[in-house]
Structures are given as C-alpha cells and as structure tokens.
Amino acid sequence: MLSLKNISKYYQAGGNKTYVLNNVSLDVDAGEFVSIMGPSGSGKSTLLNIIGMLDEPSEGYHYFMKEAVHQLKEKARSALYKEYIGFVFQAYHLIDELTVYENIETPLIYQNIKSSERKALVADMLDRFQIVGKKDLFPAQLSGGQQQLVGIARALITKPRVILADEPTGNLNSKQGEEIMELFRKLNKEDKVTIIQVTHSEKNAEYGTRIINVLDGKIDSSRNV
C-alpha cells in the first residue's frame, strides 16, 4: 500500500546536516496496524508526517497506492492524502468554533457532498460512536476522551483507507486511552482500515500488528506482534 525507500530528512545547520531521518525504508501493506515507537526526538513524528504527505523528505522515494509521491506537485499530493488518509492528533485539533456535529461534517463539505447525504453519514457516525447526545456541544464542553472520539469520527467520515495517528492517547488518562485503542483495533479488524500510530506507550503499541522502533532517525527494529 505504501512504501518508503531510502528516505532522509535533514536540516542544514551551518556546514553540517542534522539528520532527523537517515536513510529509512519502510513498507506497509493494506490492513496492517503499525505502531511506531521511540524516544523523544528520534524522528517518529517526522516519519509519520512524511507518510501523511504533510512534510516532504529531503531525499528518497515515496510511493503511496502505487503513486510516486516524491514526483507529485503539492496540489496532487494534497488531493491524494485528502482522498485516502485520515488524521488523528494528540491535541485532537477540533475546530473550536464548530459543534461536534459540524466538526464531523466539515470534511464532507470540502468534498462537495450533498447536504442530505452528509446528514445521513454524520448521523451514522454519531450513532456508531454513541455521541448523538453531544452533537450540539462545542469541543470546549467535552472531556479529552470525548474530544478524541470526535477527532476519530471526523477522520473516519470520509472513509479513508489509512488512519495516521500521532500519539492519539497522549493527552488522555489510561481508561480513555484503552477505549480509543479498542476502537482502533475494531476499525482495523472489522473495517479493514490501515492504521499507523505513533506512541510512547508500550501497552498501546501492543494493540498493533507490527511495532517499529525508531532511534536517532533510523529504524532500529521491527517486529510483528
């Protein structure tokens, strides 16, 4: 499904290059649930951003759904990620001015989906996440776990093939974290959504089907669970 070949990301600092990612290669197949682990500053978030096409590598080849991403122009790249990828953030990044309902609905508006269809899709999603009662609340009125739930619902509404999650449970307590992880596992198993998450927690990483350890900009180890 996606493939990184000899990807490097560095910053020019004086005469030296400071490598954030150094010659990383990685393949992810459809249906996998990959957990990326590593200490702070090891480059795992940068890796995830490159996979999500939000950041560009300095060198290397990047294929996604058989497209050569490194050759695409920015417009085509964003079209690509808009179609296939859903993002979940540690800080939820809900839009404060929108209600729960509107937050979930927004991606559909950007895809020019008709109002009646949008209603049905959002209603389904609210149902599925059991947040129908909260649909008119604003993000500030929700707990962290609930906000993340909305964040995931919003990521899923466009039926993406891949979900990229950057420490999705980092701001949550352990119980809320567990619920989110269960949800991810269910999505992966039942809906066949490919999931790539970055996490600090050993326990959360275990939910995945593969665990990749990143250290100093390199893939240190990769093991199947």
Binding site: S78, K82, F87, I95, Y110, A155
Partner: peptide, 19 residues
Amino acid sequence: ISRSQDVGVRKTIGANRKE
C-alpha cells in the same frame, strides 16, 4: 495563533486554498 491551527486542521481534513 488560534487561526493557524484552524487553517491547518481544515487543510488536513480536505479544504483547498480557495475554500
């Protein structure tokens, strides 16, 4: 400060520049 977040989120969930 608050707006960059707003724009960023919108872009990742599919808004294009015109919108």
